[in-house]
Design a protein around this nucleic acid. Structure first.
Lengths: 202, 202, 202, 202
DNA sequence: CTATAAACGAGACGGTACGTCATGTCTTATT
DNA sequence: AATAAGACATGACGTACCGTCTCGTTTATAG
């Protein structure tokens, strides 16, 4: 039944991913080396390469699990939900294994189609879930109108996701300033109400 | 007067920076090497290290000049100005020397205080200028109210900058989808009017 | 009677040895690998190691069979017999599986007592047989005197063997020049009559 | 005048060669590694590869100097000179850096034209010198006749060299028995007088 | 007009990581 | 038990860059 040959030890995978995260915390992306990860995991370099094709793939998997923890508890209103997701995402990006690695991976992915899809599937889509869920809830609450055209709805969701994730990421990593309660509140207000003064509308 | 010894050839600096950009276009950040840049510039490695302390500093300078070209022609309205700046910024990020390099540098800067300031001074602040200028113009047009508290005004400008730059950057590089006229228009609408339906306000 | 468990397939041994010789021909001693031999023989690496302790032992056995083919047809005189054995030995050493492997094995054997004995038993003694046989015949023909002391006789046989085998080996592999009819004839003349001009003797 | 660039430290060469010999003594040819030699010599692996293309070339040079020490003091007669050279050569082959390495190199050279010439030039020809010199002296003493045809003379010298070097090499390394005074004497007698009993000649 | 001092090219140098390969052992399921 | 398959720890391979160094050469100012 089982395939021939000695099977891979399954615990090894998670040991390696944990070692990778530890190395990211200690050394950062640019100083992370395969040899070091192997040493930390108590594993041979060949075992690493048997399971991942290189640094990038390895780090994607190591970081991806962090993004699994994102959740969207129902806080009762769209604004509160947005604030919740912003704070959660910011907390994640603030971790040295996550934020910097994500940037570096995305930078690398601009020249690597396969990596781009891997990142999207393992990391980005797991964030976008929250946006979709939040919009669903807001509609049930009547805070957002129903959009009959599913394509237009998707476009809007994408846009909102880019705005939220982009703003937090830029604030936290590019501007390198804290995403605290105050910033989160004003950002959420901007997102919901827009920049124009109330009277300027319509 | 002048210090003794042979003076540095000033053209060399720009030759090296041009070579750096060429290498970024051809190889990308992760495969760019000092030796290769030296070869391209027709310069010895020692000359490179005499003028820059390493890869990161070199690339910051090489990329910074690209961000000097950003301009904000007056298009007559806040919305039009925002669209203009979004498209300009997107065009810049789409260039392989600029977008990916910026991400990689920022990733690296999370563990390097000096680099962070260098990036801020040479790259980020040059973008933020446009936001400040745009807000000034909008006020003169009456599209934005005057904010008496300069600190609050600064916070808002920072927020708007993070939202605009972050959204474009996320769309272009993380989501890896085009920042075209359509997206720009809907993004600008969202920025100005917010997510909530008109009636939900107040 | 028979031990429990599945018995070893006997054909496997010769398949492996043939694969080893093929690998020696194609790759040579230094590039021969156990994995490659296993692959060629259609056999798992474990099977190899169950039957031989390593590369050296395996190659000794693989090469030894070649030395079994050496024969000494009676050509009617000591000189003719010497020429016959020289040409046969030279033909063997010229084969890429044999000559170079023998040298490499002997080189290795200088640090490995067990290997030394294995080579002696499986390879060297099979050559020496011919010398002993040739001397026997020469005595029957009256070309060589009887030596009453068996120990002295053995010493002389050893010496003659070292001279013949050594000269051919050195010519073929160290000097890397052909052991052809001409060389063989002059060598045999030297062996039988010596270097000194006839008159210089006694 | 001098070529541009930092010149190579000349002492490094001999340090590396000494380290190579030390490694050969300690580990033997088959366990000698470039990394280990580099470590012993206090030198980076890259420095090794900058100066030698690989293990074989390195060992040829490391071993060659040993063969420079061979000399042929005039002992008054051809027989005595032969015995002298045999003992010297045997002493050399008995050294673990020399004998086994030579065999291994020659084994490798059967598949490498360049290595073959390198060995010939650096090692073999230095031995052959002694034979040529010895024959010269023997002629002056009247022990050998003058050979008018230089080509025939060369062939004979080659033959004698193969016989002497081959016999000693085979005795010492293949048969693995001592080349002592007794053996040397009987070998020399065989070389000079031949195998046939005196009466069998003519 | 000659010191002297720095810039500059070339390339050697000690390191370190790369990704691959072979070793010999082991763990499976199958025969 | 032997076998095929293949995972595994180990460690060398030869290459590539790193950032530093040591040369000879060139180009400026200062004495």
């Amino acid at each position: 039944m089982g395939r021939p040959g000695r099977p891979r030890r399954p615990e090894t995978d998670s040991a390696i991913l944990a070692a990778t995260r530890a190395a990211l915390v200690e050394l950062g992306w640019s100083k992370l080396t395969m040899s070091d990860v192997a040493k930390r995991a108590g594993v041979a370099k060949t075992t690493l390469y048997r399971r991942w094709s290189g640094r990038c793939d390895l780090v994607v998997d190591a970081v991806a699990v962090l993004f699994d923890d994102l959740e969207l508890p129902d806080r009762g209103s769209l604004a509160a939900d947005v604030e919740g997701v912003v704070l959660q995402f910011a907390a994640l990006l603030a971790r040295p294994e996550a934020g910097a690695s994500l940037l570096a991976l995305v930078a690398e992915s601009t020249r690597d189609q396969a990596l781009r899809q891997r990142i999207r599937h393992s990391i980005v889509d797991r964030q976008k879930r929250l946006v979709l869920l939040g919009r669903e809830r807001a509609r049930l609450r009547g805070e957002l109108p129903y959009e009959p055209d599913p394509e237009a709805d998707g476009r809007t969701a994408d846009l909102v996701f880019d705005v939220i994730a982009g703003a937090v990421l830029h604030r936290a990593l590019v501007s390198a300033r804290p995403v605290d309660e105050g910033w989160t509140r004003t950002f959420t207000a901007l997102l919901l109400d827009g920049l124009s003064p109330t009277g300027a509308r319509g």
